[in-house]
Design a protein around this nucleic acid. Structure first.
Lengths: 118, 118
DNA sequence: CATACTATTCTATTAATGTCAATAGTATAA
DNA sequence: TTATACTATTGACATTAATAGAATAGTATG
């Protein structure tokens, strides 16, 4: 349970955590990427600072579902080897399903905000 | 981790669970109510069938935060005594904070949907 | 008085999150 | 050449949250 300003500013709301999975799928649809880079992309989207290990774990979970696939990056990088993730056809389908879910959520939020007299 | 059609249809997505707290605050702002009745209201909003014990527990959590207050209903009902919850001034403030969070979330979802080319 | 419905609470199990430490590579500058 | 900083991923552990189910209890109806 979190909400209403209870999370400290460096942290994030429960809604942003729930958005992690679709956000990752969308980012990986745009272009394959690795975990460390996705951390920054997610922040740029407005998801706040989600702990790296949460992101890495989610990527591994998505791979177990076969929604994404990964390979170690070929060639030298500016650091240790990176695991590059890309979306699979099943991941593409899952993303479509997520999009419908997000649209439903938009409708629900809009309805709730109207009811309070925004 | 859930998403993209992984939850079965009688169930709900993780996003809907995250919406439980603000939805309860909004419903209780409209009028004081009791848990059993709120279960139906939440379903009507589109939150799906959240298990009653989750709703009752959330209400108790909100009361511990002093965002809502409850009293046993006076007078006879068509069943056992009901605990009637009402929003407190702090709850009203928390709701305002939640509204800002929901607006932020709307923007984020809109942005994500645009990026996938809805 | 048996059954169905309304209403809430408690406990146990499972799932999800958050935090921290460990590992390991490159780059740079003292 | 080694200390420090940054890049990058993994694994283990602790905490918290979600779910299911049973227990309790009252009213209503046949």
């Amino acid at each position: 349970m979190m909400g209403g300003g209870r999370w400290h500013p460096e942290s994030h709301s429960p809604l942003t955590v729930a958005m992690l999975e679709p956000a990752l799928l969308i980012l990986l649809k745009e272009h394959s990427s690795h975990g460390y880079n996705l951390i920054g992309d997610l922040e740029a989207i407005g998801l706040g600072t989600i702990h790296p290990s949460v992101i890495y774990r989610t990527l591994r979970d998505l791979e177990a579902l076969e929604w994404v696939q990964s390979d170690w990056e070929s060639g030298l990088t500016q650091g240790p080897p990176r695991r590059i993730y890309h979306l699979t056809p099943q991941g593409q389908e899952a993303l479509e399903s997520w999009k419908r879910e997000l649209e439903k959520m938009q409708g629900m939020i809009a309805q709730l905000l109207e009811r309070t007299g925004q």
